[in-house]
């Protein structure tokens, strides 16, 4: 029996969360949850509707060293935000590839983060930008690096009494980009993607649909600036980082080869 709780304030929300240690399903934009419930993929029946809290948890602002995106900000709002456009064009590019324009008006950044899909488009980009998430509970806040937020397939570093309140993206002078290869050019599910950010001999890499959960490619990052690496070398190096699967949309082999091509092409570019 599905039940939906509808807290009107943050206080009410935490009262619910503190009352019982339960893995609630949070309804934010609903773009993933609604079809998943319909198809029987999502089986949790205790929902909390966050729509009354949307105003308080929506918007983008900055402090000295970071741009801060509140958790229930939609991707349509993100795309229009001047700060984000100025500082993180790669993240804007990724956000435009989430579903189509209809989905972007509903889907929220925190929804994309907690859904933890290996194919989620915003995540590789946020990982390479060294984003952090603020976890809020009645006990206060804790801040955790996004790279440490994912521990396994749909296994997240978040307690049942916590919600994501902010996404913190440190400003930097790194060059960043995001490349997506999908099933089509809009309303597409990513078959494989690569995000990167670099400066001098430092690089951050992350790939979508390449592993059970979103992650950085640490082994590849470490060896990325070695001299005279070949395509074959990257094939070996990348195997330490990723192991893409076969599924309804593509093959693991395809995903791996394309990722290798994209990484090697970037390598050649940056060797120049």
């Amino acid at each position: 029996m599905i039940s939906v709780l509808r807290p009107k304030t943050t206080k009410e929300l935490f009262e619910i969360l503190d009352k019982e240690d339960k893995n609630y399903l949070f309804l934010a934009g609903g773009t993933d949850i609604m079809p998943s419930i319909k198809k029987g993929i999502e089986k949790r029946e205790d929902l909390i509707d966050l729509s009354f809290l949307k105003k308080g948890f929506s918007g983008v602002y900055r402090d000295k060293t970071n741009i801060i995106v509140k958790s229930l900000t939609t991707f349509a709002k993100i795309q229009k935000d001047e700060l984000l456009n100025k500082h993180f064009p790669s993240f804007i590019k990724a956000s435009k590839l989430i579903g189509g324009y209809t989905i972007q008006g509903m889907a929220t950044i925190a929804g994309n983060i907690v859904n933890a899909s290996p194919a989620a488009d915003s995540l590789p980009s946020l990982l390479t930008l060294n984003a952090k998430v603020t976890l809020l509970s009645s006990n206060g806040e804790r801040i955790i690096e996004l790279k440490d937020f994912y521990k396994g397939y749909k296994n997240l570093e978040i307690k049942n009494n916590e919600i994501i309140s902010n996404i913190i993206i440190p400003t930097s002078d790194y060059q960043a980009d995001f490349i997506e290869v999908g099933t089509r050019k809009a309303m597409s599910i990513t078959k494989v993607s690569l995000a990167y950010a670099y400066k001098d001999k430092n690089i951050f890499l992350s790939a979508g649909s390449a592993f059970a959960y979103p992650k950085r490619l640490f082994a590849t990052e470490k060896r990325f600036f070695e001299k005279d690496l070949t395509k074959k070398d990257f094939e070996i190096i990348l195997k330490e980082d990723v192991s893409p699967l076969d599924d309804i949309r593509s093959s693991g082999n395809y995903r791996f080869n394309v990722l290798r091509n994209l990484v090697f092409s970037l390598y050649q570019e940056l060797q120049k």
Partner: peptide
């Protein structure tokens, strides 16, 4: 380029939806 039906292990169409049966979007 994209349209194709794949089968699951029960002999049922696996991608009987617009998410995974890929018709062209306006961007294509």
């Amino acid at each position: 380029l994209t349209e194709n039906i794949v089968f699951d292990k029960k002999g049922k169409y696996w991608n009987a939806d617009f998410t995974n049966y890929i018709i062209p979007s306006i961007m294509d």
